[in-house]
Design a protein around this nucleic acid. Structure first.
Lengths: 187, 187
DNA sequence: TATTGTTATACTCTATAACTATA
DNA sequence: TATAGTTATAGAGTATAACAATA
């Protein structure tokens, strides 16, 4: 505790000593929070095919009906081969449907079924509860909202900045919209 | 559904989808930011054995000299078998040393070598630059600091709440300390 | 020729199990 | 018997490559 003895601290890599504390490492903190969220959301969505990722696919499918498989994959930043497996599982569970696109017979339009929309609403509630649990140590709506807002800005920025990874369309589009209230969607 | 609003954004995706918009999904945002950070830090630390994770190990080794391999693994929340591989690489590069613990001949004490400390300082600079780049879209020190602080609180909380995953010792210890000035360590 | 979607394959990361040497 | 560390192996997740159908 009298580690302050580092007053001269000259012995080694000194000046930013506390800068190397684990909790000040952005990577460590991000990793911990990310894994924590992952675990919480996996527990919350254990029954949903594909887990948290399946949820995102289902949500995206319900949001923008008529999107192709590839567009969906780009939006979520997953490989198109992974999307095939995810959709296989969701379709087997009767939550989404693949329909041939009359305009381009190579493509399939992804639609959420009525059952899928139900499952989505149900899973969404559980997911929100899990999120609140993860954020529970931030007191009050104020800090939680602030964190969400800052994180959102970072994510949108990152998506736009990384054209390779996809999702940039969505991000670019969303970046110009109202963060908070926003209009409601056809889900 | 989305077709009806084609009025202004004639080209493509539905402009009004917002409440269930991707960017409001905490999991999506966390994933994007996490992967973005991962990529940035991997690029920045490409020459360091083990990449970002190797950096954390090296930093931890330099911080608390004399820690055992297992203690180190717990601290960082990685499996002890993974720690073996990481340390193999770091030792092969001459950045850390494994010394038999005179008090317990089963254990090895992990020490950062002088060269390891140099590499750590050097890599730390590059990592900080990468972090700033990731956070660059938050204007000013104020927002960046706020985000770091909120994230740090979440991470410490998550670490403590998850005794299985380890790292709780560090977290519990750090949680009682001053976030900013903090205790200084022997790095 | 280029693109959508599928399949098979390979690779990376991580976790599990078995082993040793100590305690 | 239990623990620290190592090694080998198996598993999840992801990416790569090749293919069929279509543009």
């Amino acid at each position: 505790m009298s580690a302050r003895s580092g007053s001269q601290a000259g012995s080694r890599a000194a000046p930013e000593a506390d800068a190397c504390a684990l909790s000040n490492d952005l990577g460590w903190a991000l990793g911990v929070v990310f894994r924590c969220y992952l675990k919480a959301s996996q527990d919350a969505l254990a029954d949903l095919p594909g887990g948290p990722r399946g949820f995102q696919v289902l949500a995206a499918a319900a949001r923008d009906q008529h999107g192709s498989q590839l567009a969906l994959a780009h939006r979520l930043g997953v490989d198109r081969t992974v999307m095939t497996y995810l959709l296989d599982d969701l379709e087997a569970a009767g939550l989404i449907e693949r329909r041939p696109d009359p305009a381009d017979r190579r493509a399939r339009r992804i639609l959420a079924t009525a059952r899928g929309c139900e499952a989505l609403a149900d899973a969404g509630q559980r997911l929100r509860a899990a999120e609140e649990q993860v954020l529970s140590c931030l007191d009050g709506e104020e800090d939680r909202g602030r964190f969400r807002s800052l994180l959102r800005r970072l994510a949108l920025h990152a998506s736009v900045a990384d054209p390779v990874r996809g999702a940039c369309d969505t991000a670019a589009e969303a970046i110009g919209t109202d963060p908070a209230g926003g209009p409601v969607l056809p889900c």
